[in-house]
Computed example of a mutant assay.
Amino acid sequence: MTTSTSDAASRFSGRQQSPLQRLQGLLHSYPWVSPLVILIVSFIVFTILNPRFATAGSMGLLFQQTAIVAALAIGQTLVILTAGIDLSVGAIMVLSMMVMAALAKDGGMPGPLAMLIGLALATGAGLLNGLLVTRINLPPFIVTLGTLSIFTAIALLYSGGSSIQASHLPDFLNALGNGFSIGGLRLTWGVLLVIVMYAVVGFILSQTAWGRYVYAVGDDPESARLSGVPSKRVLLQVYTVAGLLYGLAAWALIGRSGAATPNAYPQANLDSITAVVIGGTSLFGGRGRLVGTLIGALIVQSFAFGLSLAGVNQQYRVLATGILVIVAVGIDQWIRKVK
C-alpha cells in the first residue's frame, strides 16, 4: 500500500512539472547537453556560411587548433570543480615550454630529460598555487592572478624574450607536431595525446574515490570535511595535477607552433575558462563533466575558425565569445535553481 502510494505521488509530482522544468532538470543531470546542441548548431551554420568549414582538411586544422586549449581546460576544469579559478594556466604553460626548449636547444640536453624537467617545473608551479590557497587560505583568484605575473616575468627573464625555433630543438620535443592522415583528415600526435588526457582524467573523476572527493569539495567543502573528506589535501592535489597537465600542454604547444616563444598563446587563460564554462561546469563548483569541457573547447575554436572563414571581422569574433560566456553563466545560474 505504501509503495503504491509513493509511486502515485511520484507520478503526480512528475505531471506537475512544466516542459521548461523538465528541461531544467535534464540540464542539471547532464550539463554537457546544452553545449553539445550549441556545437551542432554552430557546425551547421558555419557550413552554410562557407562549405569549406566541413571539409576534412578544415576539420583536421580545427582539431589541431583545439588541442592546446582543450589540454589547458582539463586542469582548469579540476580547479573550477572545487569552486576555484586558475588565471595562471597560460603562464605556467609558457614557462614550462621555454624551460624545455632552452635546456634542449642545440643538443644541450636530451629531449626526454628536458621535457621531464619542464613537466616537473609546471607541476611545482601548480603545487605553489595549491599551497598558497590551502595553507595561507588566500582566494584562488588572487593567488593565481599574482602567480600569473610571477611566472610570466620568470619566463621572459629566463628566455631573454627570445624565441627558439624548431630547427634548434631535438625531434622528441617537436614530435607532437607530426601526425598522420585518415583520408583528408590530418591528425597530429598532440591531438591524440589530448584525447588520452581526457580519457584518463575523465575516468579518474567519474570512477575513483578521489574524483568523488573533488566534486564533494566543490559542492560544500565544510560538509565534505565533516564527512571525512580531506578537503585541504584534495584541493592541494587538484592544483598540483593541474600544473602537470599544463606542462603536457606546453609540450604539445611546441609541436603545434613549431617554436618556443615567451609570447605564445596570450589568450590561453580566457579561452580555457571560456571552454570550461561553456562546457557546463559550474563556476560555483561541484557540478560539471569533462566531456562538456571538450565540447566547450571545440565551440571556442569553432567560432573563431568558422567566423574567420565567413570573413567576419576579428572584433566580432571576440564579441561572439563574450556573449557565449555570459549566456553560459546565465544558463548555469538557472540550472542551479532546479528543485
Score class of each variant (00 low, 15 high):
61 L>R: 13
62 L>I: 04
94 V>M: 01
76 Q>Y: 13
88 S>P: 01
70 A>L: 14
88 S>N: 08
80 I>K: 08
85 I>K: 07
59 M>N: 03
87 L>N: 08
64 Q>V: 12
90 G>T: 10
91 A>Y: 14
59 M>K: 05
77 T>C: 14
99 V>M: 00
85 I>H: 06
83 A>F: 06
76 Q>D: 14
88 S>K: 07
98 M>H: 00
71 A>K: 09
60 G>Q: 02
98 M>G: 00
67 A>K: 06
91 A>I: 10
73 A>G: 13
78 L>I: 12
61 L>V: 04
73 A>K: 07
84 G>V: 03
75 G>K: 07
88 S>C: 05
65 Q>T: 08
93 M>Q: 05
77 T>M: 11
80 I>H: 14
88 S>R: 06
86 D>W: 06
94 V>C: 02
85 I>Y: 07
86 D>F: 06
59 M>Q: 08
63 F>S: 08
64 Q>N: 15
71 A>M: 13
68 I>Q: 11
72 L>A: 15
95 L>H: 00
64 Q>F: 09
78 L>E: 10
85 I>Q: 04
90 G>E: 12
66 T>M: 11
99 V>L: 03
72 L>I: 15
90 G>Y: 14
71 A>Y: 14
84 G>E: 05
79 V>R: 04
61 L>K: 11
80 I>S: 11
91 A>F: 13
99 V>N: 03
69 V>T: 15
84 G>C: 06
62 L>H: 03
78 L>S: 13
85 I>G: 05
96 S>N: 02
76 Q>I: 13
72 L>W: 15
58 S>L: 01
76 Q>A: 13
65 Q>I: 10
76 Q>E: 15
94 V>E: 04
65 Q>L: 11
90 G>S: 12
